[in-house]
Design a protein around this nucleic acid. Structure first.
Lengths: 230, 230
DNA sequence: CCAAAAGTGTTGGTTTTACACCCATGG
DNA sequence: CCATGGGTGTAAAACCAACACTTTTGG
């Protein structure tokens, strides 16, 4: 390895991006927060489940790399990304010193997934029923989840995770999953009424009264003067 | 450049760490938030002010690299670090594709600074009176500041920025600087009374009543049930 | 004696929480 | 007719924001 002028002489660490892509899915009362995993088709950890991700290319932005890897391995595009952190613990990758930049991706509803590229299989898993993961991806996933929880009050996370039309029950369930505790239904509805509007349609589902469907009012999160006290 | 098995064939980006080291300093009524800058002794940007930082070495952790660079360039150790983000915008470094991991460091009071290593000079600057900076370090500094502001309520930031003994006036001023607005003195004192205790000493300063000196009660931030509503 | 910062409580408004009943549907 | 989740208001408690005067010191 040759040292160019103004750069340094040590071997460079590799740089990867990994994406924890989340979605809120499942029938209302059993709505789950799910994360997209791929089964690795290449060594190391062949056959293990892992977060989609891969090496950053020359002159490629970090978020662009995350987008590209996600598209290559799962066919998903048009996703909102939030950077979570960079992790470079020595020894975390058996291939050598590797620094990864972790992104949380937010997908609406269940998106269709195909396995391609380095992935031999791709599928959604409920975040509380995970298989063993490759590398330190369990740790990465914990961090991505913690990031989502912190961001819940400050940003339109739910907007990006729920389908375009949803019931207030689903919205509430999602918030409860992220918060890790239950909230009062009437108080919840009061707090979010400035963010959503009825679509006029409703959803017939199971042996009970149909639920009104709502959508997010565009820009409502930005207009909300304070952060939401969920 | 030779591709090893299981790694990739593209040239690797370089990885650096940069540190925005903050401290709260200055006589009470004019307390400022300051950041440590070094004057670069090497190309590119020789002679420009910049955040301390440098390349991550082989098998070196990210925070360890931040610690090492700070020590090498400024002689400061024993600092608390918080990772802010990773930045890898193409073109941000004229030496080629470079990804930096940004840390915010928190130093107590004015620490003695010496310029060493790649730095020809090192000194504290008030965050609202900055010189032009090398690379994209103005942007990095903005991000580090935003990080501090967000963390203010959730973590013992002030503990790490203030000297071991301080007046409530200083504490309040620091919070005001971070918040970017003034707060009511009596309300402020009520909110922090669970976090601090009198040392018994007081500080005589200028033509007015001496101020009681306080210290942080160890573990008080952790015990605080909710995040502080500054 | 004046200027400057330190110190100290109360009140009114707002926000948050807790809580219970009826409705529409499918089985 | 029953089980299931959907939909709705009110009252007490907690919290927050606004506010003014007295104290101690140095010049």
């Amino acid at each position: 390895m040759e040292a160019k002028k103004h750069t340094y002489d040590w071997p460079r660490p590799a740089v990867t991006v990994d994406v924890a892509l989340f979605t809120a899915a499942g029938a209302m009362q059993s709505l789950q927060l799910r994360v997209l995993l791929i089964r690795r088709g290449e060594a190391p950890f062949v056959g293990h489940w892992a977060l989609p991700g891969g090496f950053v290319r020359e002159a490629e932005g970090l978020e662009a790399a995350a987008r590209r890897e996600l598209l290559e391995e799962t066919g998903l595009g048009e996703i909102r990304f939030e950077q979570v952190c960079a992790v470079g613990t020595p020894g975390r990758d058996p291939r050598g010193h590797t620094i990864t930049v972790l992104y949380a991706g937010l997908a609406r509803g269940d998106a269709a997934v195909v396995a391609r590229g380095d992935a031999s299989e791709a599928s959604w898993f409920a975040v509380d029923e995970l298989p063993a993961l490759a590398f330190d991806h369990e740790e990465l996933l914990r961090r991505a989840l913690a990031h989502l929880r912190r961001r819940l009050g400050e940003a339109p996370i739910c907007d990006a995770l729920l389908p375009a039309e949803f019931t207030l029950g689903e919205f509430q369930r999602l918030v409860e999953v992220l918060l890790g505790r239950e909230v009062d239904r009437r108080n919840f509805r009061r707090k979010v009424e400035c963010l959503v509007e009825k679509t006029g349609r409703n959803r017939r589902e199971g042996a009970h009264r149909p639920a009104e469907l709502y959508r997010f009012v565009p820009g409502a999160f930005e207009r909300a003067e304070r952060e939401l006290p969920f």
